[in-house]
Amino acid sequence: MTASTIIFYLLAAITLGSALLAVTTRQIFRAAIFLLFTLIGIAGFYFWLQYEFIAAVQIVVYVGGIVVLIIFSIFLTQQSGEEMPKPKWGRTLFAALAAFCGFALILTQILLHPFAATSDTVTEASVSNIGKQLLDIDQNGMALPFEVISILLLAAMIGCIVIAMRQPDENKTLNDA
């Protein structure tokens, strides 16, 4: 039992445990905090696999961005201390059944499939390698998807502003209420 193995099982316990709590707890604010721990656990897996850049991106974008956005929207839309109503008994049962059957099916397929490594050469996932290939316009370059993602982010930004903008005629009724 090496240190690496112990760290792996520790990360697995943190990730899966807080993920389970995030989908079952009835206080929405606690769910957001458990989601935070799940995302940090996944960043830990990226560190464990020695993909440091992806781990940093995961922490910056998910933990620093999306979770904060979710917590803000919880504060804007409802009382954070209020408990959510219990889901119906039948729905819980069938959701658990569907999730378990899917899990069993996928897991048997994974365990039956012999995965074979394709090459022995190792390209280090350093920032300079990632940056060079991401902005390359040769046949292995990723410049076109990169630009598509840029356009998507721009469209999402404009879309967010337009959707969340307060309508001028609505303004009066909201101030009255």
Binding site: L35, M84, A96, A99, G102, F103
Partner: peptide, 23 residues
């Protein structure tokens, strides 16, 4: 795989939009 199906379970049971987004 376990994480994926935990997310699927949350998506099926939750009725609140923010928690569905978390799943």
């Amino acid at each position: 795989t376990a994480l994926f199906f935990i997310g699927v379970y949350g998506f099926f049971t939750r009725r609140n939009l923010i928690t569905m987004l978390m799943s």
